[in-house]
Design a protein around this nucleic acid. Sequence first.
DNA 1: TGAAAACTTGAGCAATTGTTCAAATATTAA
DNA 2: TTAATATTTGAACAATTGCTCAAGTTTTCA
Lengths: 96, 96
Amino acid sequence: MSLKETTSVHLADLFRALSDPTRLRIISVLLEDEMSVGDIAARLKMTESAVSHQLRGLRQMKLVRSRKDGRQVYYALDDDHVAKLYRMGLDHVEHG
Amino acid sequence: MSLKETTSVHLADLFRALSDPTRLRIISVLLEDEMSVGDIAARLKMTESAVSHQLRGLRQMKLVRSRKDGRQVYYALDDDHVAKLYRMGLDHVEHG
DNA sequence: TGAAAACTTGAGCAATTGTTCAAATATTAA
DNA sequence: TTAATATTTGAACAATTGCTCAAGTTTTCA
């Protein structure tokens, strides 16, 4: 039986969250450890605004969660499904 | 070490190929068996043109391959990495 | 208080996307 | 050949995306 239309939309949303180089690079640094917006921005040489915009999307998709500590907001991967998809995709891109 | 920029682009391309409901539904029917453009279009109630356009993208990404037989062109999944990513994503969307 | 730091938000913009429609190509059958 | 079938292609279009820039919060510290 082929994919239901609603399910296909949800699944597409998930993959779309992973379909941008910036978001993938954000995920790649969060794979190591949680990190503040400013540190992520510095790591990726991007503005905090651009990073914040992307983090918002990832947060809405529940792929990352945030925790506020004083002035900083720390982000972390919310889910190891994400890490698995990331690694499986990377595996396909690098080898194979 | 964070994701190299070129690698992040390739990885994003892969996930982007999976980031559209139509393409996912195409993949879902090809998961069963190879199928002609017309049959896919009928299954998904879409025009052959729309399906053909999407298949072209999937073909360029090497996620499907095609085989011509007379007037018809049969498409099949080219890679079981795709099926794995699809199933893992679906698992995340349906449960968890 | 006031200013600086860390982050978020909204508007605006060029670039990309997925579809439709019409026309082109390729193959088969009459 | 001619007509019909199956698929592809290109242009056009609205819708979405990811960024910048400026202005807004919230929190800390002098």
